[in-house]
Nucleic acid binder design. Structure first.
Lengths: 108, 108
DNA sequence: CCCATTTGTTCTACGTTGTATAACCATGAA
DNA sequence: TTCATGGTTATACAACGTAGAACAAATGGG
């Protein structure tokens, strides 16, 4: 199976997971994506995208134990699979050619 | 009305129109987009996208006179509107931040 | 002439993404 | 025991991506 093409939100979400490390869970991703894209995203937008990416095998997730703070329940934590990293590199390559930009460093 | 967000094909098509100048008609755009994205696009994909962009007011079009070559019939020629140029600049800005790349020159 | 061929556009249909809202769940504080 | 907080799931629909077939106009060769 060759690397799937990604929509723009999918891309942003994948990148967010790549950068966020232990903050890579639903609402954390939401904050990051909203910041990078310069507009607020609804929770639904983010969660649906996360699970679609997981279905495609670009992400994997697990439950964390509940957190000790006020209301801090358990989180669904995400992480890139090998396929996810490949897809990101690929997307970056395409973007660079598309925009005729220098590759730079970035999270991928 | 603030500048609309664009899908990835819409973006490629808009960019193609921006760069192609007098070759900015259906099949010309198709060639360009296919080359940049590294895969063949169907005619339907391109034409639908072109008209959606026109509906949004990012492109405008007109009929050219028939061309003198074999089978050369008239073309529907496209050109960016002011809103189209703005949308491209905007998209470029977002992409640069998203990928953390240097802005570069580009067609916009 | 007229028709096969070339260049080009429109129509139609459907799967995938984008996106919002509401509902639901768990936990600690009051 | 209820409420605010932090978190996730469910559901629904509009917009975008994409393909394929049908259609239209021009022209050169028999």
């Amino acid at each position: 199976m060759n690397t799937p093409e990604l929509g723009k939100l999918q891309l942003s979400v994948l990148m967010a997971v790549a950068t966020l490390d232990d903050e890579a869970y639903g609402l954390g991703v939401r904050r990051e994506v909203s910041e990078v894209r310069g507009r607020e995203y609804s929770v639904g937008a983010i969660y649906t995208t996360l699970s679609r990416l997981e279905e495609k095998g670009l992400l994997e997730s697990w439950e964390t134990p509940p957190r000790p703070e006020r209301g801090g329940r358990s989180r669904r934590q995400y992480e890139l699979t090998a396929a996810g990293r490949t897809a990101l590199r690929e997307a970056r390559r395409v973007a660079a050619r598309l925009w005729d930009l220098e590759p730079g460093v970035g999270p991928a």
